[in-house]
Design a protein around this nucleic acid. Structure first.
Lengths: 125, 125, 125, 125
DNA sequence: GTGGTCTAGACCACC
DNA sequence: GTGGTCTAGACCACG
């Protein structure tokens, strides 16, 4: 389980972990009943504090994306794929909505906003 | 000078002030040499601590957007409009870039991404 | 009496006035018993607050450089020239001493310090 | 980390801290990735308020001289040495330039100015 | 433990 | 009146 952690990012490390696991599930790289690395194991790999990994798992468990089997380990929930896909669409829509409303509050017209978006979209594609 | 402060937001109050003043300048509602309310005055209006306003003004001064005249008050810098507009475009482009790359990391195709954006954009317009 | 005031300088306006009058006296442009403009007059010329001029005159009077004749005005003290010249040497020596000790505290060697000075001196001459 | 604070100086305490850390870096006593004392620790040592230390660190971070790792501490930035050395030269040159122009405005000749400097320089060496 | 934010209230220099 | 600095003390997120 190789995740990319950017310790100088402004988003907390534990959220970076949460997001990346979300992505793996949405992409299908992780599916129902797949095991996740143990807290200690992942902490070692990423050379971060075990508390940080534990916090990320807690968040994912709270979201119903993973679950724990006593003394056995942590696994991807059945239905996590569906949940992640719904969550994904909701999240992406929210990001676009935010970008648009930010731009509008700066006084940009809808056309100007679209211009900026189109440039980014073309650059990505 | 009526600003909207959301004290339960996760973004610090002082940054909310910074952003809103940036917007006013980008929009042209504030231009070079316009006076800003005094630290104490604005603190009273927003019913927050003067130190919090001072911190916002410090940040804006650091960015070169405003300047202070000894015992006279705080004013919008000449060239602040340009600076704020550049900052605005940079920020909006960054938001779109983030939304797009987030979506891509979830496994969405460029066309799917554009679909989500178009829906948001139409809703806004 | 034309003085140059830089309102955006970090040195207070009243001190800028003090220094410039000092200089006029050291240079001989002002000598014993010469009259100075009234507080109101100078404030008008410089478009600054009369309090600020008054404060500058107070400082100069305290230094013994000027004195006031009741209801008549303000005049340069006899002996002000001498006082200003002594003051001048003391002040310039202090400035150099400060520059040198600052440089030393940054770890520069005497030779490095001299190099920086020589460059400035040549540029000036 | 022993710093010398003069609480009766006219330069603010937080700037005294900023300058002294700059000096340590310029001198090489602090180099890239060296840890700085925590805000609270340094505040205790200097018997000043933690906020004051925080403000000094904020200024240094703004200047790009130090950076903070989430909940881990504060460290010297890579490249801080170079930045501090450039800043050092700039500052020392500015001090000499100021001393020279002050002296000139008092009517001293370049040779007289050099005389005063030479005396100070020899006294220091 | 780390730094980030905020409040309340003080004193100061300057205009 | 203006902003600048400082203190004391609080709560929070993060690791």
């Amino acid at each position: 389980m190789i995740l990319e952690i950017n310790s100088s990012s402004s988003t907390p490390i534990y959220l970076q972990i949460v997001e990346q696991i979300h992505r793996r599930i949405a992409r299908g790289a992780l599916t129902a009943e797949d095991p996740l690395p143990s807290v200690r194991q992942l902490a070692l790999e990423l050379t971060i504090n075990p508390n940080t990994v534990a916090r990320a798992y807690l968040e994912l468990e709270f979201q119903g994306v993973i679950y724990k089997r006593q003394a056995q380990g942590t696994y991807v929930s059945p239905g996590a794929g569906e949940a992640s896909r719904v969550e994904r669409d909701r999240m992406v829509a929210a990001l676009f909505a935010r970008a648009i409303s930010e731009a509008a509050s700066f006084g940009m017209t809808p056309e100007e906003i679209d211009g900026v978006y189109q440039k980014q979209w073309r650059a990505h594609r």
